[in-house]
Design a protein around this nucleic acid. Sequence first.
DNA 1: TTTTGAGTTGTTCGA
DNA 2: GTCGAACAACTCAAA
Length: 490
Amino acid sequence: MEVQQTLVWLRRDLRVTDNPALYMAAARGGPVIPVYVWAPEDEGDWSPGSAAKWWLERSLAAFDCSLRNLDSRLVLRRGQTAKTLCSLAKETGATSVFWQMGCEPNSLELERQVQTALTENGIATETFDSSGLFDIGGIAKDDGSPYKVFAAYWRKLQSLGNPIPPLQPPGCIRPPDLWPTSLTLEDLGLCKEEQARPLFSAKWEPGEKGALQTLTKFLDDGLKFYSYRRDRPDLSGTSLLSAHLNFGEISARMLWEIVSDHDRTGEYSGKFLTELGWREFARHVLYHFPDTTTEPMRREFSRFPWRSDLTDLEAWQFGRTGYPFVDAGMRQLLSVGWIHNRVRMVVASFLIKDLMLPWQEGSRWFWEKLVDADLASNTMGWQWVAGSGASSAPYFRIFNPVTQGEKFDPKGAYVRRWVPELSGLPDVWVHKPWLAPRKTLEHAGLRLGTDYPEPIVDHASSRLAALSGFQAIKKDLNSEDESTRGIASG
DNA sequence: TTTTGAGTTGTTCGA
DNA sequence: GTCGAACAACTCAAA
């Protein structure tokens, strides 16, 4: 019997442990060729942003290392994905292509193209739904429709018990007699236009090994305190695993199992596992409502009186709003490609409700700048803050950037870290420098309006403006209902 | 089909 | 300083 050669098309599953596509390909016994195809033009509007590309470059290198320990390697190609895979299959004599499926509309569309092209060329395909806890299409209400409320979705997940346990890495991966040619990482040009990112390198270690180290550290001294420290950007209370998860360097199932095993009583792990539940819910919602990446799930929100103001948008993007907690978050984003979760909500609320700029501007900026940019979670997060999404915040929930700072960064350590020009201010004024006495500012060596901006909006009045904006779309909706009713009855 | 209970993360105001 | 109410009804899930 002829030996079956298999291509494994790697995507955001850059791991050897619990990688069903790789595992099953290896288990066939024939040669396996792992390949990554860099084809940003195939990703539609959501090709990786600059921070994600920084991570991807290093993650690919790390994955290649892991494969080499298993006598394999990662082949890199560039070009239209379907065409590239077809020609690589022909070139190597591979008869099958395996991959992990995604949940994003652009990804699913690409997979359809690839599937069609491969099938037309007589090449078999097999996909594995292994990027979440459960199969993406497998969760539904009793009537078969998708969930729109997290609590109900979460109850459903919990009724299903544990996800299927993770797979071991393949014992060995048989290499082909002759490796096909591969580009180098530099050839892909992922980071060519980027300047050095010293803070990225200091904070992150992309790859499977880095993911496990981060997890181990979190289990040792983070999980126990997670439920209260997770809201404190001045403490290291979160797992820092988001980007590792995003690139599939660790699977959600593996994380679920390890965290559950580490805390069998569930006393500490519950809150963390719920966050995995939110990730799962975001994927569920995007899968069933693919246009939510750009369209509000509640349609009336498209009539919100969004402003359009490039100056304000740029002040937000580059951390010059004059609100220290907001600016700290936005500068943290540019410096390390990541923002603490609590601060994400505050900066998002500021863009949407204080500046009244469209949430889509925010989600686009995050997409460009986050190392953990995930279309499902990013979309859900922004729609949640806007109030337009599934299970989202009520419209009147408007974060106060000062009180949020005082509550969750009480000593101002987070603000001082990312907005160093404020570091000389006493704790009481660090979140509201414009209210500090003139003498205090002088003593701190801070000239407001020169060294650090005055607030670009007054929170109290912009809050009221946002509230009346939401009133307006409600009225719009009501009058539309009335007219619809009028037509129906007339 | 109808009914009932519930819904991530907040702020402000007035007692 | 602390506490409860108001914010605003509405949609969703499930019995």
